[in-house]
Design a protein around this nucleic acid. Structure first.
Ligand SMILES: NC(=O)c1ccc[n+]([C@@H]2O[C@H](COP(=O)([O-])OP(=O)(O)OC[C@H]3O[C@@H](n4cnc5c(N)ncnc54)[C@H](O)[C@@H]3O)[C@@H](O)[C@H]2O)c1
Ligand SMILES: NC(=O)c1ccc[n+]([C@@H]2O[C@H](COP(=O)([O-])OP(=O)(O)OC[C@H]3O[C@@H](n4cnc5c(N)ncnc54)[C@H](O)[C@@H]3O)[C@@H](O)[C@H]2O)c1
Lengths: 221, 221
DNA sequence: ATTATTTTGTGAAGGTTTTCACATAAACAA
DNA sequence: TTGTTTATGTGAAAACCTTCACAAAATAAT
């Protein structure tokens, strides 16, 4: 059966995309464990999902498996990489080289996954010009000129919440269409700009809610 | 109309809880801006949601508004805090005082929201015993005894992925029921333990997918 | 070969979440 | 007062997402 690239009009749900990320990570692991093929059942078990969910998710994008056998690990991993758009390098800039910013620069998972932080910006004179993990920190004043020059496609925002919107306004002016935001604010951006928020308080608050209310988990088969 | 605390059997969706966190943050902002009341319309606008969504979310927990007027900002904030269980202090420990761990210890939003990191653990002899932001780093060997001693209720896991499961096994043995995990692995825990994962690659991959596929956003009114 | 077994891919069913739409109630204006 | 406006709270409808269940296809066993 040939893997087919469906170019369907149907909107794919956010959950499906997130699960593709999980499948990708698990397939990498399976590859290391020398699995040649994997069934939807096994994949589901590892992700605490149902096999039907796994098959349905994949079916939105094509047919990748062999009946009676399962999915070829290496090939499926490649296909998911292609679907997610991580079969290429993304040039990433980070604004705000503080506590969390510095941590992210050192985060090996990003570079392993072809997200390369190649530019850093800050407004602190003590930081500007200094070399941080092999990257010279640029002055935030030069954001609008240097982002296009460096062919940046994704910007990570790690500045204080009070200035995040101003920074993002400039980031958008520079033509950037994708932003990963760590500041605890709702950013306003034009319709054609994608923003994802990392909100750690939200997850802690979920834990808090769950404990206080003995919130039942979704049943898992 | 009296605010009523519904003790319903119905499972509240994860999305609703996450939105409560957003409402809470926005209400804090509205309080600072000296709003006395706020309508579901205004709240929705700030969160990029529909007014109906806001009202429905709140209605699961009681009736907090006044028809013709809206919701009293301070009172609603209190009510949401009570629902989320953040009207009290949570004692938090963090394991793995590395790049991301250190950043989290410095994260003021946590302490402002009554999540207090009061204990740090690591296995690096150079770090153990040293004072980090006013907390002496403990030896990971003492995890099982010191977690109960310090009355810890939530543990943040910020150790390398390869050891995360072992750490979590010990954390669970120590009786902890809530874990915030930063390691990129699917942790196995008993049914009565809540785990939330912070997966930053997932969000970057979502951005990647969205850009490559020109993924339409959900329509927003 | 033939049969039993495995496992995919997918319509349809079932379940959950969001949105609609309106009765209801409070506030405000005249 | 009375009427007009505003805005909640909520069943019902619509949209969306997950699971079911089974035909189809491939493998493995006899
Ligand atoms: N520390 C954490 O663990 C953590 C976790 C989640 C989210 N956040 C959020 O991430 C952001 C940064 O947090 P942090 O703890 O790293 O703070 P930080 O103060 O350590 O870092 C902020 C950095 O941004 C720089 N900066 C300030 N204004 C700037 C401007 N106008 N232009 C460019 N750079 C500017 C500062 O010089 C500093 O280097 C905050 O919004 C915070 O709420 C932090
Ligand atoms: N750096 C980031 O921005 C980032 C972002 C998201 C997730 N993560 C994840 O968070 C984890 C930590 O990442 P990091 O960049 O901070 O790494 P790091 O190496 O800087 O920190 C890891 C810390 O854990 C300690 N440690 C190692 N083994 C331990 C053990 N058995 N018991 C106790 N402590 C132990 C180390 O001494 C070190 O202090 C990793 O799983 C990583 O994938 C990191």
């Amino acid at each position: 059966m040939e893997p087919t690239a469906k170019l369907s009009k149907k909107r794919i749900s956010e959950s499906t995309i997130h699960r593709l990320s999980l499948y990708y990570r698990t397939l990498s692991l399976l590859e290391k464990e020398n699995y040649e093929t994997v069934s939807s059942k096994e994949l589901a078990k590892r992700e605490k999902l149902t096999p039907a969910q796994v098959r349905k998710d994949l079916s939105f994008f094509g047919t990748f498996g062999t009946r009676g056998l399962g999915y070829p690990v290496i090939e499926l991993k490649k296909q998911i990489a292609s679907i997610l758009g991580i079969d290429r390098q993304w040039r990433v800039a980070l604004v705000g080289v503080g506590n969390i910013g510095s941590a992210l620069v050192s985060y090996k998972e990003f570079s392993r996954q072809d997200f390369h932080i190649v530019k850093l910006f800050d407004n602190d004179q003590r930081k500007i010009g200094s070399n941080h993990k092999g990257i010279v920190i640029s002055d935030i004043k030069n954001l609008e000129t240097e982002l296009p020059e460096a062919k940046i496609e994704i910007v990570i925002v790690a500045v204080p919440a009070t200035v995040a919107q101003y920074i993002v306004d400039d980031v958008v002016k520079a033509g950037i269409k994708a932003i990963l935001n760590f500041a605890p604010v709702n950013l306003k951006v034009p319709d054609d700009v994608y923003v994802r928020n990392e909100n750690m308080s939200m997850e802690l608050e979920y834990l808090s809610f769950a404990m206080v209310n003995e919130h039942p988990k979704k049943k898992v088969k």
